[in-house]
Design a protein around this nucleic acid. Structure first.
Lengths: 123, 123
DNA sequence: AGAGACTATATACCTAATGAATATAGATTG
DNA sequence: CAATCTATATTCATTAGGTATATAGTCTCT
């Protein structure tokens, strides 16, 4: 079954990485955001300033827009340089929901490994 | 602190992927194994036959040997084509231990995302 | 014995994801 | 107006992974 297979974390379409993408969708779920400002918000999900690559962030946001997961517009008028503000799309919300199910399976798999490790080593 | 940073899942040295590598180290922890036979054992960790790429498996094992995580020898005498049998090294055991700690952090981060999702969406 | 299927390992080629570095440019501050 | 900060974007290189294919010995059946 292709649909089930897609839920496996290692499958072609749902790799284990792309965690940043999920966090961005979640941050944008109920409020808009712009690249630079999202960096701070990502700390909530464990991204440190050093860890997070600014290029990766902007590239990811642009890619997500081409995939219609988010849409963007230029925010004029505020202080400082103008910002490209992103908002989630309905498509993006659906995608996030699928991602969450992937993460749940992924978490279970990690758990299996951790338990097996302690079973083998701590005894 | 570089040591702490290395524990983050996205850091340069500990990416989120390479889950296969951890599972292989764990399988080889207390008994030797060979490529083709490990495929079946990997099902325990959620790898389906279709999902698991045979090339990836062999490539990963060879790479792990160059990194001194495992060592190998040719098993002669048994039925069928001869097998390259892998065994874990002390270095590999240390590495697995570090990986487990990475996975524990990774699991916590996934949990944060899942909880935040339900908090935002299911209410 | 020979054909075909199976077991087992390995490599070549390509794409996708990511990191590092750099480019651009307007806004702010002194 | 020079220096700095905010903000976005792109280029180049590396790595992980997928697809396809190569190689070769073993087993089974006739």
């Amino acid at each position: 079954m292709k649909a089930d297979q897609a839920l496996f974390c290692n499958s072609k379409h749902h790799k284990m990485e792309r965690f940043l993408e999920v966090c961005l969708l979640l941050l944008l779920y109920d409020e808009v955001g712009y690249g630079y400002g999202l960096i701070e918000q990502l700390e909530y999900f464990g991204f440190s300033q050093e860890e997070l690559n600014v290029s990766t962030l902007y590239r990811t946001l642009r890619k997500m827009e081409t995939e219609s997961l988010v849409s963007s517009f230029w925010e004029e008028g505020g202080p400082g340089p103008r910002r490209r503000v992103y908002q989630i799309t309905e498509n993006g919300k659906t995608n996030l929901n699928q991602w969450i199910r992937v993460l749940e399976i992924r978490k279970a798999r990690i758990d299996t490994v951790i338990h097996k490790y302690h079973e083998k080593v701590d005894s």
